[in-house]
């Protein structure tokens, strides 16, 4: 089961990171978005090719007011 931002997500292992973003209704070209899978950054250039491993913990982060 894929864990997306701490919650189970309706995405299958093997799908690319970009599938997660679509699932979330995010524009993959939007600025201010970054993705980590299992504690490692997935660079934007790999969002279409990086396949989610089994039980991946995915963090999708965006710009927020702060600091």
């Amino acid at each position: 089961m894929i864990l997306l931002n701490g919650q189970s997500a309706d995405v299958q292992a093997g799908e690319p990171v970009s599938a997660i973003l679509r699932h979330m209704g995010l524009d993959p070209d939007a600025r201010g978005v970054a993705v980590a899978v299992d504690g490692e950054v997935v660079p934007r250039a790999q969002w279409d090719s990086f396949a989610l491993p089994e039980d991946a913990r995915v963090e999708v982060l965006g710009a927020m007011q702060g600091g």
Partner: peptide
């Protein structure tokens, strides 16, 4: 100007993310 990174909620929230940038 400083900005922070936080989890994006399903549905693209916080929408402020993109518009903040």
């Amino acid at each position: 100007v400083t900005v922070a990174l936080r989890r994006v909620l399903a549905g693209g929230e916080p929408k402020a993310g993109g518009s903040l940038v």
